[in-house]
Each structure stands twice: as C-alpha cells, then as structure tokens.
Amino acid sequence: MLDKTGIAKRIAKEIKDGYYVNLGIGIPTLVANYIPEGINVVLQSENGLLGMGPFPFDGEEDPDLINAGKQTITTLPGSAIFDSAMSFGMIRSQKVDLTILGAMEVSENGDIANWKIPGKMVKGMGGAMDLVASAKNIIVAMQHVNKAGESKLLTQCSLPLTGVRCVKKIVTELAVLEIAENGGFRLLERAPGVSVEEIKNATSGKLIIEGEIPEMTI
C-alpha cells in the first residue's frame, strides 16, 4: 500500500519531458518533488504563472508572488507571468499537457466530483471546473476509499459533478487504473504488497482485470 508520498512518486513517473503541467492542491502538489532527473517540465499555476519554482528561503518571501494555493513561491529562469484570463486561455486551448488533481469521487465513465458536499459549507470550485473541462490528460490522485470505508471509484458519482467524462487515469494507495474507452476502471498496476482481491473489494464501479496485473515500481 502506498502513502501520500508514494502516490505522488508514482504519478511523477507519468510526466514526460517537455510537459506543461498543472498541479492541484494536496497530493498533486507533492508530485513536483519527485519529477525524475533529466525531465524538463514547466509547472503552471492558474493564478498566472508558468515556471513555478520552489518555496522561497526563509526571509525571502514576496507577497506579490504566490501560487494558486496562495502559498509563497519563487519563479525560475524562463518563467512567465500573465493575467487570469490568459491563464485559463492556455488551459482551455489545451496548451497544458497534464492536469493532476484530487477527487472525492470518480465514476467508471470518467466523471469527477471534487468540489461540493451537500449540507456542508461549499468553498467553491476555484479553477477545477475549467481544468477538467479542457485538459487533454487528467490524472486523479486520491485515496481508494473514503474515511467511512466506502469506495470512491463508483458506477456513478453521488456528489455534485465537477466535470463529465474527463478523467484518464487514477492513482490511489492501492492501484493505478485507467478509464476504459467504453467505461470501467481498467486495472493497470497493483501497489506493492496489494492483491487484486483487495482492489476488487475497494472498487464499487466496474473493475476490468485483464491478465496478470503487475506490481508497480516507484
């Protein structure tokens, strides 16, 4: 079974040289720490920055320079700053190669719910609806089951949707799965020490198992 760092490390392997990548808040943010050596990627922050660098050194924070999570950050050589309309322009026109974000639920046809729980204070969707509606490649980083022990991989999402038919791949503490063309979660890899049976038990939607399922390498 993977911890949060393990999920981030596995997702980092999906990033290819030359990618522009948007990372959501939570586990996706950690992915930046594990991008393989020799792979050049540019991180997009939707508040208006391409080329997001690491956190500043203590005492060097700039209140005018933050990421979409409102954290103080730095720029890198080659960074570019732009306004919010252009930021979502490059997202909408699919210039961003990969979007990695968290989710509360994913359905077997690739629908995603990650912004609203009825009855609870709703904070808003931020840029998530724009990102999922336009991204050509979306990887979801999340736990396989929720705190109540219920599967988050469902036939149909029960929570209000963020986007429809958009998720391509899911990495959880148990497995790597992709959304099959005609629906269903196709099991690609097992986390170290996790059996196919355990993944079956934790998946409520249609699980597609074809042949031997390899254990993932990180």
Binding site: E60, P63, G69
Partner: peptide, 12 residues
C-alpha cells in the same frame, strides 16, 4: 500591508 495568506518557505 500586503498580507501573506500562506507563508511557505524552505530552509537553506
């Protein structure tokens, strides 16, 4: 004032 909402830093 330019208040910072999430002060995040790394150590040297």
């Amino acid at each position: 004032e330019k208040r910072i909402e999430q002060r995040t830093v790394r150590t040297k």
